[in-house]
Amino acid sequence: MADPVAPVSFTSLIETANLQLRRVPAWPAYPLAFGYVGWLVWLGATGGLGVEPVVALQRALGEAALYLLIAGLAVTPLRRHAGLNLLKFRRALGLSCFIFVVAHFLAWAVLDLQSLGRVWADIVKRPYITVGMAGFALLIPLALTSNNWSIRHLGARWRQLHRLTYAAALLGAVHYIMLVKGFQMRPLIFLAVILILLLLRLRPGRLAMRFQRG
């Protein structure tokens, strides 16, 4: 006879998860991110990304960055609405995302366009590149301040600064929408998920208070 199964409530499940997650270190995210970039490059060099690996590599790296932006944006809503605490992983998610964005940019600039002149011409002339570069530029100060020292020294301004993530995520999704041909669902789904995660952060109570005060 099997043991009777104890009823498991959602809350206790989340509590167990939170306890277990405390033992999971965040640092493996960095070797994993670099490893994934290296693996993609190796695939590209050995035919694993098809006969046109440069574009495939850019696409894979760009999507990886979007996935991690989404994961980072999900941390707060998950804590607030489900009680799941992933806060200790957020820096690793953000910095891994940045690793992919830098690799995505390098794949485009070095392997695809192959000249600074072309890179600059595209940044000023091509709106989808301008949008993508703007998103990249916003992530740079965030990556530079993703350390304990910056958090201590910037204080409240650190939180304000890191709200740039919202704009960067939107720019990333719009960049993707702008580069595809015809009506394609995939980039629209990325944008929809990002919009939902941003909407979940709005707290009606606070907004109402602000309006009353305003």
Binding site: V41, E52, L113, D122, R126
Partner: peptide, 22 residues
């Protein structure tokens, strides 16, 4: 005459691998 979203001045020849010149 460029495409509105990218240049048509050069092209990537398929099959050249990761490091092929445009």
């Amino acid at each position: 005459v460029d495409h509105r979203r990218w240049s048509q001045a050069s092209e990537r020849v398929i099959g050249g691998g990761l490091f092929a010149k445009r």
